[in-house]
């Protein structure tokens, strides 16, 4: 106590600042950094959760890169990203752009778009899973059958399954993206639009020359944010394919599901950790690349 009393006011302020800052720092070190470091360590070991952890060097990585399933899953993960991010952003922008101009029932419509974002991903995945079922229980296929159109094997096909799973994931994230886009649109000063109108600029040029360039920070944020989301997709796939996890024939399996399967079905913790390290690296590289490409010059 004596030492504290002898401190000057500014020194006391520093002590307090560090004291308070220490709480989140300790928290992060214990629940984030320590496990992360441990996972990286574990990726060079072999462990079934029960016995001792044995060093295996790069065996897990060698096994991973020579595993055809891994490359298939790696491809799927990027397919989720490449299909998901542009289509969800485009959709969200179109909706936000028009919703922004709408007065009639503006709040209600906005709420309707936001609702799926608040719904539990698990519940939604199961509802969509049932929508996609073949006759006699699936809504989509029952409708098709009523009109005499052949059924579409949504989840039972290597071609349709991935887009079918992606659709509810895009729909669920749409509300959030619409809200962010609208905030971005509102932040653009009206004076630019007024000036454009006085100069007689066309609507298309207004969009491409004013709106989109000024939305760039918003777009960068959403691209990074939704890319990470699609690269980490799990809930929808896991819940919509419980009968054949990541199937049929691994056509929908993302990296996170493979990690889960390796860790909690095969109990091959070292191998799962190696996959996690790869996912971590991919996320890091993709995020850094996007930030770099879209950075303001």
């Amino acid at each position: 106590m004596g030492i504290y009393k002898r401190l000057s006011i500014s020194q006391k302020q520093i002590v307090w600042a560090w004291g308070l800052l220490a709480i989140p720092i300790v928290f992060y070190v214990v629940v984030r950094f320590y496990p992360t470091a441990n996972a990286i360590l574990l990726s060079f070991q072999e462990w079934n959760l029960l016995g001792s952890r044995n060093w295996t060097g790069f065996d897990n990585y060698v096994k991973l890169f020579s595993d055809p399933t891994f490359w298939k899953v790696f491809g799927n993960t990027f397919l989720y990203l490449i299909l998901g991010t542009p289509s969800s952003l485009l959709l969200a922008f179109v909706i936000a752009f028009h919703l922004d101009k709408l007065r009639f029932m503006h709040g209600t419509i906005r709420a309707l778009y936001f609702l799926p974002f608040m719904t539990s991903a698990v519940a939604m995945a199961w509802v969509w899973r049932w929508f996609y079922q073949p006759v006699p229980i699936g809504v989509f296929n029952n409708t098709l059958a009523t009109f005499g159109i052949p059924q579409i094997p949504f989840l039972n096909s290597t071609t349709f399954a991935l887009p079918s799973i992606l659709a509810p994931a895009i729909w669920a994230g749409l509300g959030f993206q619409v809200i962010i886009f609208m905030a971005g649109l509102r932040a653009i000063p009206q004076t630019y639009y007024e000036a454009a109108r006085i100069d007689g600029i066309s609507a298309w040029e207004t969009l491409t020359e004013i709106t989109i360039p000024l939305l760039k920070p918003t777009i960068v944020f959403l691209v990074v944010f939704s890319s990470i989301g699609f690269l980490r997709i799990f809930d929808q796939v896991f819940n919509m394919t419980t009968n054949d996890p990541g199937g049929p024939l691994n056509s929908t399996k993302p990296l996170v599901l493979m990690i889960y399967d390796t860790a909690f079905n095969s109990f091959d913790m070292g191998y799962a950790a190696a996959q996690t390290v790869v996912l971590f690296t991919v996320l890091l590289v993709v995020s850094l690349l996007q930030l770099r490409v879209m950075r303001d010059k």
Binding site: N156, D244, L249, D261, N265, S266
Partner: peptide, 17 residues
């Protein structure tokens, strides 16, 4: 689950491929 998956894929390949 891994051994089951092998048999699921066995029939899956016949159905889809």
């Amino acid at each position: 689950s891994g051994q089951r998956q092998a048999l699921m894929d066995m029939v899956g390949r016949m159905r889809l491929e």
